[in-house]
Design a binder for these strands. Structure first.
Lengths: 250, 250
DNA sequence: CGGGCCGTTGACACAAATCAATGTCCGTGG
DNA sequence: CCACGGACATTGATTTGTGTCAACGGCCCG
């Protein structure tokens, strides 16, 4: 077990343990998974549509987007993955990609072979369950994404996305202000929300009016409650730190 | 093992076996799951937002929608479930509902306790994997739903939905025409696509122009290729009958 | 110095929402 | 049997949010 890998995968173990209960042995088994780190340039599609992959990808650094392309050429981002996320754990059970994965900014990823993931899931049912739960959370985020692009107005939709990302990045308030790096262009934000970059730009202007700014890839939220209200944001769907008693008693 | 239950759950086994390889023993274990059938009236929410459930739901008959409600009162349907679908297998690993489940029409459902589902998943890793795969397909459908409401125009979006449902219902062409029952109102279609019922009505008029009609809850598609082209539909994401050699060699 | 990429702004077009009225069907009760 | 009410479908007039097109400015990087 390489120390390097152990420290890399520690983030993954930590993520799983935030929602599932794993014994030391089970945690160690995940630490020991073989993993191959690689750096991906911005805008590079490291999984293409229709491609059959033999590994799942864990994000160590950067920002990864799941892209779906439609005939007319416009692109829709259906998921964003930040450090600590598995982008496609489901590829273990469905290895042919139905959407592409692209690094939105220069990113470092870890490729973990399906064979190893399947082996650990088969040996430890609790690990299989933790994987399943992790994917379930991704589905919940995706369902909220549908709501966001489906029936919220642009400013509300953008507010919701910023709230979600602040939570997922576990941003802490500094004197009432939440500030974090968010390396997306306005055009990419448009692809995520089904809007044009022009409209994103104007909508950011509106958010400025309630104390939320996005300049130079830095989000700054001065009034969290107001942003949540505008975005109709309820963090419940993120299932943060759901590992209480009911999980132990199974 | 009751014959009644066996015939009910046979649909579920069939579904799982269309994408996963299960031994006879594993199939029998699913057949033997305890299940409680119940009839749900149209418009009744049988799982409410925030509720913690102890069972997953299988649709025997009717049509079930997954609903998300936003502050302003408008509703967004994020998934449709037809007979043969599990609506919330993921509730085994995340029992607190982050969206509601409602019968769109009078429906018959089967409630299967989480304890039983978890037990069979723990005993048979291949079953756990089949469950996981089934959920992965739901995620792929959800991702397409994002694309649909996010960046397609109304007529394209509606066309895509009708194509998807025709495939999921496994509709066969009759003299080049696909015809099937689809018990949704125009208002519900609007909730699914993030459009108003008025606009759905007008858009259905447009689809009439390319030989697709929806009258009296019956969809009739005279020109499949044209509808697919309009909806930019590629059925690949539905993962129909993905159970070939690569799955056996694992 | 020059060429891209990104952000910003304005004028205009258009798709879809909204508001409102009317029509149709169907179940219910007088 | 007919009158009524409610849910759903249909249609028209108008408004509005967002897209499109276009131009310009800042900035980084080669």
């Amino acid at each position: 077990m390489s120390t390097l890998f152990k420290s890399n995968l520690a983030l993954f173990v930590e993520r799983l343990c935030s929602r599932s209960v794993l014994s030391q042995e089970e945690q160690d088994a995940i630490h020991s998974l073989p993993a191959h780190a690689s750096q991906i340039d911005a805008h590079f599609d490291f999984v293409r549509l229709g491609e059959t992959v033999a590994y799942s990808t864990f994000v160590l650094d950067g920002l990864v987007g799941r892209f779906d392309q439609i005939g007319s050429g416009s692109r829709q981002i259906t998921a964003l993955h930040i450090p600590g996320d598995m982008t496609d754990l489901h590829s273990v059970v469905a290895p042919t990609a139905t959407s592409a994965l692209e690094a939105l900014t220069t990113s470092t990823i870890l490729k973990i072979p399906h064979t190893a993931l399947r082996a650990v899931a088969r040996k430890y049912p609790a690990v299989a369950e933790a994987f399943w739960r992790d994917e379930a959370v991704n589905s919940m985020i995706l369902a909220q994404w549908v709501v966001n692009v489906g029936c919220r107005a642009a400013k509300s939709s953008l507010a919701h996305l910023l709230c979600e990302m602040a939570c997922r990045y576990k941003v802490e308030a500094d004197a009432g202000t939440f500030r974090f790096q968010f390396p997306m262009t306005q055009s990419q934000l448009g692809d995520a929300l089904g809007l044009t970059s022009v409209h994103i730009n104007r909508t950011l202007g509106v958010l400025g009016g309630i104390g939320t700014s996005f300049k130079g890839q830095t989000v700054c939220i001065e009034d969290w409650d107001k942003l949540c209200a505008l975005g109709d944001f309820d963090r419940g769907y993120l299932q943060e730190n759901i590992r209480p008693a009911q999980m132990l008693a199974r």
